[in-house]
Design a protein around this nucleic acid. Structure first.
Lengths: 193, 193
DNA sequence: ACCTGAACACCGTTCAAGT
DNA sequence: ACCTGAACACCGTTCAAGT
């Protein structure tokens, strides 16, 4: 199954295999950044100087490769969601997290779509990593709701979709991130406030 | 240039050419609906029973084909934008139009992205047709702003991007269109109201 | 255990040859 | 004037053969 891909983080690898793994990761990172999440896998292998088969051995699907590239980002977003409430009001914490999420999710063109797509496919490696981040982030929504600082008629699935839409909009006009975010946050305000 | 594609609506065509044109349009419509805007052009030609060259002759680019398929939708959205203010308040007119826009833009998966992408490419046939619709729709935003029923710190380019994000979100959860729309409309409310 | 690249299937796009 | 389909370039994915 995904044993090969996993081993790179969990178990030792032969030196040449590890080197190939790292090279592929580095090239994938830069290719996704430059060309978007639908960039050519063959190109990545070529630039990394390995056969296409090697890419598939390490990353059996495009999602597996994307997950490896995104893993650290997702982890830090999860961590952020747990730290923010310490220093900010529930509403501010949610806003701060959404802002960071939108920024991170704009790193590669097409990422918001890829992230949402993965949530429909539990078998994907991206799913687990993404799910944890989503859960942590949406905990901030629940806190804000309990504190009466966010409306109740939007479940976390909705809000996560909106967060992705926000990222999608941000992708179109990065310089207006703050406006889009402000609008989303205003929309999330409880009706009576 | 685009003379061939144009001629189908403007000038007479040889009978066989017209038949091919109609068939291609019909197959494209159903292929876009079933497979999204990135569906295979070869497949469309095959289903229409014509050579791939014939598809390219009538529709030199994917956008040209998309435009032909979307033309009527865009025209009716433009018309709607002009009719709504007669019977509704400026704010309600904007909301009603956005609702219809989101619904229409969900007809084919990937459409919100295609529509936004086209606005960066003035030479595209889709551009003109899309631009007219956008202008008419965003006129409703300006009316609402003048009536004090929408905030001023969002220009029409922003709001159109948001409308596309709304459509994008709707694509993910069609059954929650109204919630997403309500949230957007609340976000557009003037701060003091 | 890992790597390679040929092989297969598929698509986008062009264009010479046909009617 | 229009149609056809072969030709070319490219990509995703698999797998037999190599070390």
């Amino acid at each position: 199954m995904t044993t090969e891909a996993r081993s790179s983080r969990d178990r030792p690898m032969r030196a040449d295999a590890r080197r190939n793994y790292e090279r592929l990761l580095a090239e994938a990172e830069s290719a996704f950044a430059k060309q978007g999440t639908d960039t050519s896998l063959e190109d990545i292998a070529r630039r990394a100087g390995v056969g296409i088969g090697t890419l598939y051995r390490h990353f059996p699907t495009r999602d597996a490769l994307l997950e490896a590239v995104l893993h650290d980002r997702f982890e830090s977003l999860t961590a952020l969601a747990r730290e923010l409430p310490a220093s900010l009001s529930p509403r501010e914490a949610l806003g701060g997290w959404l802002r960071q999420f939108a920024t991170q999710a704009t790193a590669y063109r097409g990422l918001p779509a890829s992230v949402l797509a993965t949530l429909h496919d539990e078998s994907s490696r991206l799913y687990a990593s993404c799910h944890a981040m989503r859960t942590a982030g949406m905990e901030l929504l629940h806190s804000a709701q309990r504190a009466g600082e966010a409306r109740f008629d939007a479940d976390s699935a909705d809000v996560f979709i909106l967060a992705c839409s926000l990222a999608w909009a941000t992708e179109q006009r990065p310089e207006h991130t703050d406006r889009f975010l402000a609008l989303l946050m205003d929309g999330l305000r409880p009706p009576t406030a």
